[in-house]
């Protein structure tokens, strides 16, 4: 099941048959059946163990050592953690990451919710065009290279729009520590996909909900607050976790666009972690990774508090 399907089905109004609360309990499975199940689960489980938990655990262990690639490994206690804790560039990278996350979640995650809801009010034909625009499969690297040119402060398309079309002063775009993060996030407003998932989910809401609300005297805003948003909630909740994790882990895009500049104003935590790896400081890098992991987990826990599992239960 794709994410989209799942999202649509979660939020769609297809009501379950009456009386689902009294589900019949399955009888205990036979031994043979248990064995079969275990065998089915085994590949995924060992994959997760090998490529998920083992590296995670090892990263944790390594962060307490000198982490030499060859030669004897010595335990160094919290040395790496202390080094990372007091490194001013780590604090700066966390600050940049936090701003990036807030901007990207605010602009490319929440705005599309409202854009999608507004679009649903438009004729079907327009909806299809917008979905197509959102669905254009722009490859990460290719579009990044394109935007690198468009953002050029001397001959880029955006500068042309700013000066020739809007009649503004020339803008610095990426060449400004105040603006660089905004402009890095900006293309995502147009080309990032959650809008598509929102629209698919919205299309799965039975029209009768809106009609009933309309007849019961609800205007556009009340319909949005009492129907569209609650119905989107499970999807928003799930996508928000991805967005939070994705934006705290952001790496490739700013790396290629600015390399972290100007003056480290766009260097995220993972970018700094990568620089540490470049300097063969594996223990420091893993310690920084642990900091990031803890920070992200805290955000996810907070997020879970705000979104209960199922609004219909």
């Amino acid at each position: 099941m794709t994410l989209q399907q799942e999202a649509t089905e979660t939020a769609g109004g297809a009501e379950p048959p009456a009386g689902t609360e009294s589900q019949v309990r399955e009888p205990a499975p036979s031994r043979r059946r248990r064995l079969e199940r275990a065998l089915f689960v085994l590949p995924a489980f060992s994959f997760q163990l090998t490529w998920g938990w083992y590296p995670l655990l090892m990263a944790f262990v390594i962060s307490f050592t000198n982490a030499r690639v060859r030669g004897p490994i010595e335990f160094t206690g919290l040395e790496s953690y202390e080094r990372m804790w007091s490194d001013p560039l780590v604090a700066e990278a966390f600050r940049v990451t936090a701003i990036y996350a807030v901007l990207s979640i605010g602009l490319t995650f929440f705005i599309p919710i409202f854009v999608a809801i507004l679009l649903m009010e438009m004729p079907k034909r327009h909806i299809r065009w917008m979905m197509l625009l959102w669905f254009i499969p722009l490859s990460g690297i290719a579009s990044t290279l394109l935007f690198r040119y468009m953002f050029n402060a001397q001959y880029g398309l955006f500068q042309w729009i700013a000066t020739e079309v809007l009649g503004l002063e020339p803008q610095p775009f990426l060449n400004s520590s105040d603006q660089v993060l905004f402009w890095l996030v900006f293309p995502g407003i147009l080309f990032f996909g959650p809008g598509l998932i929102y629209m698919a989910t919205l299309q799965g809401i039975p029209a009768s909900y809106y009609e009933a609300a309309e007849i019961e005297g609800a205007g556009f805003w009340r319909k949005m607050w009492t129907i569209s948003l609650p119905r989107l909630r499970p999807v928003i909740s799930m996508l928000l976790i991805f967005a939070v994790i994705g934006s705290t882990q952001v790496f490739e895009y700013p790396m290629i666009m600015t390399g972290g500049g100007p003056g480290g104003a766009s260097r995220t935590v993972v970018m700094y972690l990568y620089e540490l790896l470049q300097n063969l400081r594996y223990a420091d890098a893993t310690a920084l990774g642990v900091f990031l992991f803890i920070g992200t987990m805290l955000l996810v826990i907070i997020q879970r508090r705000f979104f209960r599992e199922d609004p219909d239960a």
Binding site: P88, L89, A153, P172, L174, N175, S176, S177, G259, G260, G261, P262, G263, G264, A265, R267, Y272, E275, L276, Q278, N279, R281
Partner: peptide, 16 residues
């Protein structure tokens, strides 16, 4: 690492 120095060089080069 040289990062801090490179940061400042990048800042002085591009910051408008």
């Amino acid at each position: 690492a040289l990062t801090a120095e490179e940061d400042m060089e990048s800042r002085w080069s591009f910051e408008r």
